[in-house]
Simulated scan of single mutants.
Amino acid sequence: MSREVEITALEAVAHWFSEAKRAVILTGPELTFEAGIPDAGELHFNPDINSFREDDSVKEKYWEKIAEIYPKISAAEPTAAHKAIYELSILGELDCVITQAVDALLIKAGCENVLQIYSSIHWAQCLNCGKDYRMMETLTEMSRYGRKIPSCAVCRTGILKPPLSFPGQPLPHWEVREAWIKIQNCDFLICAGASLENEPVASFPVQARGGGAKTVVISAAKGSADDYVDAVLYGGPAVVLPALVEEVKRVSSV
C-alpha cells in the first residue's frame, strides 16, 4: 500500500471517528505483545477445564506458569496504543472499549467502560464457592507456605484459578452479552490488534457493518476480516493509534 493511500485512509478513519456518536474500539493480543508480556488469555496457554479440575499435575504446571509470568504482567505499563485509546475517549464519543486482553492495561491507562470479555488475570477465583482473591496475594501465600496449588481460605475445599475461560468453559456471559449490545448499536468500530479468527469476536465487524457502522481494522499483519471492513490501516497499534489521535485532532480543528 502506498504512502499516499495510507494517509488518505488515515484521514478517512479520523473523520469517521470524529463524526461517530457511538464509537467502539475492540482490542486484542497485539497490544499485549507490544507491551512485552505474554497473553495469558490465549486458549493454548490454558489447560482444559476438566483436566484442571481432576489432575493435580495439570494444576501444578499451570500455577507454576502463572507464578513465572504474573509479576511481568503486573509490572507492565500501558503502551502508546493504550494511551492513544484513552486520548480517543476524550476526543470523541467513545461508547466503550471491548478487549480480548486480560492484562487490564487499558484500565491502567485511564480508560473507562472497558469490557474484558476474556476476564482478568489479576484475580483468582474459587471453583467451589466463587470467592475472589487478588492474584498477587495468592502467589505470595503460595510462596510463603510452599504450596504448589492454592486453595480457598473460605470454603477450605475449593481450588483457585483465574476467572479466565479455559477450553471447555464458556466466556463470561455478562461481558459477552454487553459486548454484543454495544456492537449492534455502534456507528463506528475500530478493531485494533484484535484476533478475529474465533467467535464471538469474528462476527463483531460483520455485525457492526451490517448495522450501518463504519468498520476499521488496525493490525501489523493481514487478516481474514480485511476484505469486508471499510478500511484497513496496516501497522502495529502502538504506531497507528497515536497517528490516528493526531489526525483526529487535525481534522477536528479544520
Rank of each mutant, 00 (worst) to 15 (best):
M1K: 03
S2R: 01
S2P: 02
V5H: 02
V5C: 00
V5G: 00
I7A: 09
I7P: 00
E11L: 02
F17R: 04
S18F: 03
E19G: 02
A23L: 08
L26E: 06
L26C: 06
G28H: 09
E30V: 01
L31R: 04
A35C: 07
G36L: 11
I37P: 03
A40F: 08
E42I: 02
D48K: 05
F52L: 08
S57Y: 05
V58C: 04
E64C: 06
Y70S: 08
K72T: 10
A75I: 03
A75P: 02
A76L: 07
A76W: 03
T79A: 12
I85F: 03
E87F: 02
I90E: 15
G92D: 05
G92M: 13
G92Q: 08
E93N: 15
E93T: 10
L94A: 07
D95Y: 10
C96A: 15
C96E: 04
I98K: 03
A104H: 13
L105P: 10
L106M: 15
L106N: 12
K108P: 05
A109E: 06
Q116C: 04
W123H: 14
Q125N: 13
L127V: 13
L127E: 14
N128V: 12
D132P: 13
Y133A: 13
M135F: 03
M135T: 09
M135W: 06
E137Y: 07
T138V: 12
M142G: 09
G146Q: 02
R147L: 12
K148F: 00
I149S: 06
S151H: 15
C152E: 05
V154M: 11
T157H: 08
G158R: 08
K161F: 02
L171P: 07
P172K: 08
E178T: 12
E178F: 11
W180L: 13
I183Y: 01
N185Y: 07
N185E: 13
C186Q: 07
L189Q: 11
I190R: 05
I190F: 03
C191V: 10
C191E: 07
A192Q: 05
E199T: 10
A202D: 04
F204W: 12
G210S: 14
G211T: 07
V217F: 08
V217I: 15
S219I: 00
K222P: 03
A225D: 04
D226F: 02
D227Q: 12
D230Q: 06
A231W: 02
V232Q: 01
L233I: 08
V239G: 01
V240R: 03
P242I: 08
V245E: 09
E247T: 04
E247W: 04
R250E: 07
R250F: 10
S252G: 11
S252P: 01
V254G: 04
